[in-house]
Design a protein around this nucleic acid. Structure first.
Lengths: 321, 321
DNA sequence: CACGGCTCTCGACAAAAGTCAAATCAGGGC
DNA sequence: GCCCTGATTTGACTTTTGTCGAGAGCCGTG
């Protein structure tokens, strides 16, 4: 891997252009290639993360609402994507913001836990490339052989690819048919090590799932709509890394959860920075549950969700007094 | 400082352009301003560090020579600027590299010690802007009221400005006329605190000065050429943060050093990352002294200097065996 | 309220960057 | 040795971006 000559050229071109501020034709002269090639190399440099263009996400934390949310829910940092939408599609707006925030939080040498879901995959897909050495991306929960492109291992691998990092997948099914089998599998050295390593992460990226018939768990066949309804009746409030949690953010005591191979919530809570991203307004309750369970220290949401959260916090504190 | 409306616009434009990848005219439409204004805002955004464009400096560490130097001198990382010069002025080449390396090493919340000299000022001058919150830049040594633009406080302030950080100057003279006065001044609470705080830095940036008539110390009137010659005779090998060191990298026992107000070498050594940048080939011996004294963990030099260092290391190890 | 002085904004032009199809090159297989 | 394949490079063209001077808005001042 000792830097191929082509890569060397990309590096040099990027260096002259971005660090020294030469124009493309000047770079072309220096390197004795055509300007068109320089343009091409520069694109590659951007795509591979040899150059990093990042925009400060301050604007979105500096908001008064964000500050109030931080206080109300004891969060380390909150980013609010304006709903009025600068841009055509409002839901990608949150994802773009989340990707920037994520890249801002990652540091060299970090170990990053990644869960799965449409949100996470959208973020991965939209995230720009970076050239982090010594970063490991680990998968937080077992796999689902779904026809979706956002399978847990896909999310992990895609993010690893973007960061130029090592991806650590684990190939156990997310959910098994019997509790015994799940228990046995969890005890397998390969799996056990992977699960144990999760608490060592420096940063986690996940969203929270809703407990309804539209949930990924249903779509992927892990649960039937009927089972979902039953779980809801039993107090299920959300889904984190494939596990069903109740309104207080604890694992719901149910057969399904006992059959799941995924990160223990305690391990997740041991991770210093837990970045939760929520796109859909419908995930209000699941988000509340996740926050209640201390599963989130950094939060990226839309303006509308932010307002609901604040209103809720206000009502709660009024009731308390 | 609650974000002025103009700044808000800059942020939004930068966000749409760099994060969402819209074209300038699309951004202009969104924000209902002319495209020319957008271009202007974007320039401001780059200038103020709202967007960060950084290029990986890997190319310069990945060099075989750099690795060998790291081994030979037990350094954490070495960057070598190719001498053949991509670009017109070879000395700025090193400074540009140093600035990039520096920005790569800085992290949020860091405390950064900055010394002074032409090299440091060149770096400050060339360094691109960044938007680091919670960063403090502290001055490592007393001031010299020189007509030069690279006074210690200037270096500190300029770097602080570029990083959007807090600058902590200290207004004591670098050198006093009597040892008693220096001692008294060092005991002053303001000065004492500043000096004590140096060991808490996470990162230091300095160069090393030569012990000759061209030295800054002479140009700024701190020492006469004759005194310099005398010091040289007494074993002076280099200048670090205004202090004269011997070949082993220890403070030389001389009146001048006792009259200086500057960071103790022990404090400097307590700093985790000590980034030393050397532009001039003539500073070979001073650099050796600084390395010997453990005053440098990260090193940025030119190719020629790198060769000399390696040759020296080779000769030394041959002699030893 | 009229007047500079100031900053901000715009339109038009010039410069730079992006793109694409054609040409060239390298290397492997026959 | 020759031809084919795929990747790289290039010149010519188009689109996008940077810049500049003119004009518009905004204030504090006389």
């Amino acid at each position: 891997m000792a830097i191929r000559p082509a890569e060397q050229l990309i590096h040099k071109a990027a260096w002259l252009y971005y660090a020294h501020g030469l124009r493309q034709d000047e770079v072309a002269n220096q390197l004795k290639i055509s300007r068109a090639s320089v343009a091409m190399y520069l694109r590659k440099a951007r795509e591979t993360g040899i150059v990093n263009i990042s925009t400060s996400t301050q604007l979105f934390t500096d908001d008064v609402m964000a500050r109030r949310l931080e206080d109300a829910f004891k969060l380390d940092a909150v980013w609010i994507a304006p709903e009025n939408a600068y841009v055509a599609d409002p839901s990608t707006d949150i994802a773009v913001l989340a990707a920037s925030v994520f890249l801002e939080l990652v540091k060299k040498g970090d170990r990053i836990g990644v869960a799965w879901g449409r949100t996470v995959y959208t973020i991965a897909d939209i995230m720009s490339y970076a050239d982090l050495q010594d970063v490991t991306v680990v998968q937080l929960c077992g796999n689902l052989g779904a026809p979706y492109s956002y399978r847990p291992d896909q999310c992990t691998m895609e993010i690893a690819r973007r960061l130029n990092a090592k991806g650590l997948n684990f190939y156990a099914p997310l959910v098994l048919s019997t509790e015994e089998l799940a228990q046995g599998l969890r005890a397998e050295p390969v799996i056990r090590d992977q699960l144990a390593g999760i608490a060592d992460c420096d940063l986690a990226l996940y969203s929270v799932g809703a407990v309804d018939a539209d949930s990924h768990l249903v779509k992927c066949g892990a649960l039937t709509p009927a089972e979902m309804t039953t779980l809801r009746g039993q107090g299920a409030a959300g889904v984190i890394a494939g596990q069903v949690i109740d309104a207080s953010g604890e694992v719901l005591d149910c057969s399904y959860n006992r059959r799941v191979i995924s990160a223990e919530l305690a391990s997740l809570r041991a991770i210093e920075k837990r970045l939760m991203v929520v796109q859909e307004d419908s995930k209000f309750e699941p988000l509340l549950a996740a926050i209640a369970g201390g599963l989130c220290t950094h939060l990226v949401i839309g303006a509308h969700m932010a307002e609901r959260l604040l209103a809720h916090a206000g009502a709660a504190s009024k009731k308390a007094s």
